[in-house]
Design a protein around this nucleic acid. Sequence first.
DNA 1: TTGTATGCGTTATCAC
DNA 2: GTGATAACGCATACAA
Lengths: 344, 344
Amino acid sequence: MTVSKKRTIYTIAEELKLAPGTISKVLNQTGNVSEATRERVLAHIKEVGYVPTTSARMLKSKKTYSVGIVFTEETDIGLEHSFFSSILQHFKSYLEKEGYELSFIVKKLGKHELSYYEWCMNKRVDGVYIVVGNYNDKGLYELIESDIPCVSTDMLLKGLHTVVSDNEEGIRMTLEYVKKELKLDRIGMIFGPLWSKAFLERRDAYVKFSDVYGLTRVKACEIEAESFGFTSGYNAILDMLSKSKDMPECLLVASDDIALGVLKALKDHGINVPKEIQVIGFDDITFAKHFTPPLTTVRQDRMALGTMAAKQLITLMEDPDAMIPEVIKLPVTLIRRETTQPPK
Amino acid sequence: MTVSKKRTIYTIAEELKLAPGTISKVLNQTGNVSEATRERVLAHIKEVGYVPTTSARMLKSKKTYSVGIVFTEETDIGLEHSFFSSILQHFKSYLEKEGYELSFIVKKLGKHELSYYEWCMNKRVDGVYIVVGNYNDKGLYELIESDIPCVSTDMLLKGLHTVVSDNEEGIRMTLEYVKKELKLDRIGMIFGPLWSKAFLERRDAYVKFSDVYGLTRVKACEIEAESFGFTSGYNAILDMLSKSKDMPECLLVASDDIALGVLKALKDHGINVPKEIQVIGFDDITFAKHFTPPLTTVRQDRMALGTMAAKQLITLMEDPDAMIPEVIKLPVTLIRRETTQPPK
DNA sequence: TTGTATGCGTTATCAC
DNA sequence: GTGATAACGCATACAA
């Protein structure tokens, strides 16, 4: 392929014996251009493979077709965290199909330090997607309060559009399953870190619906894991075992990552799952079905999460005042596998 | 925080009773500016939080402090693939610390379709990082042959700077371990898809060093997995078991993802690891140590891979003709865990 | 040492 | 319908 010589609206105007402005008009489908010249210009542009230069365009107009991503890297999270990177992946696919481009928001450009907001203004991004954010991050609030469209799949904040799984319903159906299908009574739960809204919701739902279904909560077996990962699950069980010999029949775990650690710890202590204790996770990460035994869990639809966030953001970018619900709850599904076992 | 009113070099020049050009000079540390005004300008800029607008700057100058990322999504790969996203994460961290910004290269901007190369020219990225690419992707070659600095941690191509793990040495040390510590003789290997250079290198090294160390290759147990994931490993074992009852004492597997599937299949068929057969993986993904039994494997230093790629790219971006080696091989480490067991 | 003028490639507002 | 022309915010060569 020949490396195309540099073209601008001027060169192509010249080649077509037209005025630069006219080219711009057909490019932006603005103003009046005769159908004839329109076609002619479009054809030529396509033939020579001309693409308007982003920077110049940005200089003049508002739309940049770019969105900034906030992906806070902390406490076991980051691109390596499969749950979030999966959502991001789907978000990315959808947005790219719509012609948008994704950039990670940084706090430094060349030698200039800047806040999220400054970066966004500077880059003139059309919108922002918060994949995972930290409630202690001041910069985030400045961003959310600004009039740059923001969407998140993680944080729940007044004024921020968020797409999340229906955590409460997930726990409700789990507990209903425990009661009605598993026919169990005594339950416990390994919570995730409770500063996370999602984990908090799951804990609250657990408290609420254990009542509703008349389940018995074993208080000694309700533990808040120290973090998000496998290890925190493992440690939570160590903690539990040291405190009490009084094990529940079924243990809910706030996330699969933690649940896998739980399962491992149980196995290491010779406690059989599901015979001696049954375990139910949350998320349905890829590995959940590959573990031994395969984990019963509540599936979050990662694709729907990412895609829906993308849709919301596009709506907002096209019309910042669009009347759309601030938080959208997506349905979840209970996936029955082998860490639970209904009575025969 | 007050949302700063819009500033340009003009407004800040005005505020300081200086000429716009002067501001520009101190910003770019070019031309002659007295130390006094320099300080004054810098101080003011910092105070009001002024940041030069990228688009305008791009229009004039070369450097954009931005790099494009090629992350081909195929055959089980994508952001969800923890190995690659982990490398990307480290690459990203390093580059951001240096003030660069990362954007995913897309093939469509607004309503314009464009090639990788066009996108890069258009955005004026300083460089490109190919996290994972596809050899069949024509657009990639155009990019690599252009004079945009490119670095990869995946593809091996003439003219492309690449940072990879020393696959050959990894396999060599594995085989030495099998021979000298494990005292085993009969070996087999589940290869990864051989169109991948990395997997090809591992296969070739396996062939070469099994000779060197006088190991016996069980041909019926040398199988090319159909893909990258857990499932392909599982299927490879199904395949192997159907073909031969003649199992090797030790099975190398081209990657941990595949190896975990292998382990599961073995377990499902009641074959004990490491008692009946020993297994060694490659990569040391996070989950390798959490599996039951924990996987013996060759660790690739993902952080070094990402960081080194970042360093190489920066060197190239600062001086495109820098004399640096085209391919850098990073050392790997054998991690002994429980899928292998030396004789007592 | 500091200020001025011009161009970068667009878009948008006018006249024609 | 079409063609000039003025911004947009910065860098740079050149004049002061």
